[in-house]
Simulated scan of single mutants.
Amino acid sequence: MTAFAALLRAVNVGGTGKLPMRDLVTMCERAGLSSPRTYIASGNVVFSSDAKEADVKAKLEEALQAYADKPVAVLVRTVDELSAILADNPFPGASSNKVMVLFLDDAPNARDIDAVSGQKNEALHLGKREIYIHYPDGMGRSKLKVPAAAHGTARNMNTVAKLTSMAAEVEAT
């Protein structure tokens, strides 16, 4: 079995997209995913499965569509991919709560960086299927707009590290 993390887009943010995490665990179990565990109430869940990533994504998106009566995007990574994201952090000296990982389904390209606006002192770096963003003054003060974010979901490095650890625990069981 492979350990995965699923990151839901626009869940429990700003009073919209409410999804109790116990309901998410139940959805995962009904979808045949093993040992689901959630982390903070913003749509993070780890589990294991024999299914391929695309099948896991499709199962979760179908269950979430039925639950929410609207599409809910899900970004899926294996525990190995999460570990690589941590290892490849291009801003290792920065505070981990000021480095965001924008998870995407496909590989980003230079156009994704060229399309940003409002950039002041933020730094962006392309990853395999993610964009790393360093917000030296904090995300809350930034005016940075990243159009690629409309197709992804972001987590800070603290969350990525925790999900990696949780997924490794699930894989070990």
Rank of each mutant, 00 (worst) to 15 (best):
K162D: 00
N97T: 12
S83L: 03
G127D: 03
T16F: 10
A161K: 13
A172E: 03
N156L: 07
E81L: 00
A54W: 08
S34Q: 14
L8I: 06
A54L: 06
P108R: 09
R155L: 10
P108E: 07
A31W: 10
V116T: 15
S165I: 00
A68M: 11
V146C: 02
A31H: 04
A168S: 11
N44F: 04
A87K: 11
L60R: 07
E29D: 10
A5K: 01
M21S: 04
Q119N: 10
L126V: 03
Y135G: 09
A3M: 03
A149V: 08
N156M: 07
M166E: 07
S96R: 14
A41H: 15
P92C: 04
Q119I: 12
S35G: 07
F91Q: 02
S165T: 13
L33R: 06
A51F: 02
V45P: 13
S142Y: 04
Y39F: 13
N12I: 09
E169T: 06
R155M: 10
R37T: 12
A6Q: 04
G43D: 11
K59V: 03
G32E: 06
I133Y: 05
L33Q: 04
S42F: 06
L75I: 13
L8Q: 04
R141H: 12
V160Y: 00
K162Y: 00
D112N: 13
L126D: 08
P20S: 11
L60G: 08
N89E: 02
S96I: 09
N109V: 11
V101S: 01
D50Y: 03
G32R: 09
L163S: 01
K120S: 13
S49A: 11
R37C: 07
A41T: 12
K18T: 14
A54S: 12
E53Q: 15
A58G: 03
S83H: 08
V11K: 05
E62H: 11
A41Q: 15
A115F: 03
G15D: 05
E62F: 09
V74G: 02
L126F: 05
S48T: 07
S95E: 14
K120I: 14
A161S: 14
V160P: 00
A161T: 14
S42L: 05
G152S: 03
K128Y: 02
T26W: 11
K120Y: 05
P20T: 13
A31P: 03
L124T: 10
S165E: 15
A41R: 13
H125A: 15
A68N: 01
I131Y: 03
S49G: 06
A115S: 11
D88H: 05
A84S: 12
V146W: 01
K162M: 09
R22W: 06
E61D: 07
A154C: 11
D69Q: 14
H134C: 09
A161I: 04
G93Q: 15
A31M: 09
S117D: 02
N121H: 14
E171N: 09
I131A: 06
G140C: 04
I133E: 04
E29Y: 08
A150R: 12
F4I: 05
A6V: 01
Y39M: 09
R141L: 15
A110P: 03
R141C: 04
E81T: 00
V116C: 14
G118Y: 00
V116A: 08
V72T: 12
R30N: 15
N121G: 14
S95I: 10
P71T: 08
V116G: 10
Y67S: 10
I131G: 03
K70T: 13
G140K: 10
N109T: 13
T16V: 14
N44C: 04
